[in-house]
Nucleic acid binder design. Structure first.
Lengths: 340, 340
DNA sequence: ATTAGCACTCGAAAGGTTAGAGTGCTAACA
DNA sequence: TGTTAGCACTCTAACCTTTCGAGTGCTAAT
């Protein structure tokens, strides 16, 4: 036995239905649907086949059928239809973002809020990865005698900072001159690429070897490995779905959201593909085995990318989520152009 | 009829018991408690009185009694006993905080985590209020031709930033010189106090009147009114309590946590008292009418203060929460001394 | 190949019963 | 006069039982 057009069609109808109702779907329901021209009995036979093929499961004998993870996989790969986003949705997203442009953190927070509001799922937004950001300016600001604040302004207007130890007695003027030189030498490079310039820098700044070493060390290590900020929006949204009627489940879900350590590898896994869909057990966190995560990248400036994600129940409305993510990704890129 | 020692004692016992069990407490239970030398019948009479006085309520005829908001008020004001924090708790808190000292944001995040872990309630931490922070350094960093980043380093090592428009063609060197001058003139003042120096500044920097106006405007308005960051920790903790067995309740609670707009006035209300306790309906948010919020201040540098808060069910362990907040407040102040 | 018909299954909802924790009242007691 | 034992009463939570209906798989007819 193998899949044929009718099986595909029926499976899609079942999944569509289940996504919108969360109720195991029976043969009558499908048969009644517009466009399906078969009696419940026929559908039953097909459903039985689909179950054998591993696409459907029955919670218990006298219940309807529920799609399996395998079915969702097939669905997102071949079956589903991605509609264009409605005017209303686009407007809602734009309304959220219509504000002071350019402050990256602000935009990220709004994006998370917008994504969760529009989809009714949970949104995750990851700031652009440090490695891929282009340095626009480096500036050292004296804080105390012995420490300074290093500020790095990057493409897209993102600001990263870190404290660096400096030899005592270094004056503001010197820090400024060094800042100018660092900006000269490192400007335009990414944090990943800058290592190549170190030798040059050391030559030009022989007399301040110690200071320089400490500054470069912080850039190389502290700044780069600092995990990106993850902003969460609409964590409580999922509690409205019957999947989370059980408080214990809700609780474990929410505590995952509170733990950057768990969230980070999850988003990492998605890599830098334009879109990525992880269904249920496909994501590595057992706590999230009945969630799906859909991610998309957004671009800021030239070359640096961040991640947008939607986390929802496995039966989430994948088509819509993808449209929303796509639209949002573009909206952000427009909002955060390379401010050159 | 009025309160006497025995009534106080019984009421305290009832509240203590209810706080730890969440089950309506009956006369037998109290009577059996060590230190109460009366039979259930006597206790029943007293309970009946306490109910009439508004301190107790009965969920239904054949259930035990539950303390009213009025009872909790009396409890925190007069009845409860605040124990010293256990060695273990102190160690747990210190373990959370034992890390790179000085990065304020980092410390705040850890504090929220620690507070929620140790209390099993939800923690709120508010960064020090902008108005009360002492300016240590002002620095303008060119970003694009036409805009610069203003960085303000304040006492306690806190960093605030904002984008300012600058006239086109302004060079890095000039921005640096102006930064130095601003630092000179404004250093040591709080954002609230600096207005007094404006006249002086304008005199010294006549030729850059436009630039200066735009910088000062951003400091005066944008920076000061920017609501402080509120960090939430352990939002999912409360779901473990029977009070939140109802998903709908859990959901409204969590969505309050996600809305800075609602959280901010809530914390504002606490003012700058050393400790503040708002029980149930005493806080203005109807969504939180069966929560209590206990807050304490922490100090960073000289004069600037931030707020620590614990949000839990009305029957929370007030004594313990206060000890924890007290300890944490001091720990933070030690961790973030005025880095002068 | 499709479908009508039918017996069967099983969970959710509704109703009924019971057990026990707690009460208020009364009367006895120190 | 304050305290307490005793008792009838109340009310919920927990457990059973029954019923209802949605859904199935199989068989036989189309």
């Amino acid at each position: 036995m193998h899949m044929d057009d009718r099986k595909f069609m029926i499976l899609r109808t079942i999944i569509d239905d289940y996504i919108s109702t969360a109720v195991p779907v029976g043969s009558r329901t499908i048969s009644r649907k517009h466009g399906v021209g078969f009696s419940p009995a026929t559908i039953r036979n097909e459903m039985s086949d689909l179950e054998e093929l591993g696409y459907l499961a029955q919670p218990h004998t006298s219940a309807g059928r529920v799609p399996s993870a395998k079915a969702y996989r097939l669905y997102v790969d071949q079956l589903m239809r991605v509609h264009k986003l409605s005017e209303l949705d686009m407007r809602r997203i734009n309304d959220h973002l219509k504000m002071r442009v350019g402050e990256v953190e602000e935009v990220i927070r709004c994006a998370a809020q917008a994504l969760s509001d529009v989809t009714n799922y949970t949104a995750l937004v990851v700031a652009p990865h440090a490695d891929s950001l282009r340095i626009k300016r480096v500036q050292l600001i004296p804080v105390t005698d012995g420490s300074a604040l290093m500020i790095i302004v990057t493409s897209g207007g993102l600001v990263k900072d870190a404290t660096v130890r400096v030899p005592e007695g270094v004056k503001s003027d010197l820090l400024y001159r060094i800042s100018e030189m660092l900006t000269d030498q490192l400007g335009g490079l990414t944090l990943g690429e800058m290592r190549g310039r170190f030798a040059l820098l050391f030559r030009d700044l022989k007399e301040h070897r110690r200071l320089l070493a400490s500054v470069l060390d912080v850039m190389e290590n502290r700044l780069r490995e600092k995990p990106e900020e993850i902003t969460v929006g609409g964590g409580s949204n999922l509690l409205a779905y019957p999947e989370y009627a059980d408080i214990e489940k809700a609780r474990t879900f929410l505590s995952v959201l509170e733990s950057r350590e768990k969230l980070y590898p999850l988003l990492r896994q998605a890599g830098s593909m334009e879109f990525s869909i992880r269904i249920g057990p496909e994501n590595q966190l057992p706590e999230l085995s009945d969630c799906s995560l859909v991610t998309a990248v957004y671009r800021v400036g030239t070359g640096s990318t961040g991640t947008l994600g939607i986390l929802g129940p496995t039966r989430m409305d994948y088509g819509r989520v993808i449209s929303v993510l796509d639209f949002m990704g573009k909206a952000i890129s427009t909002l955060l152009p390379d401010s050159e």
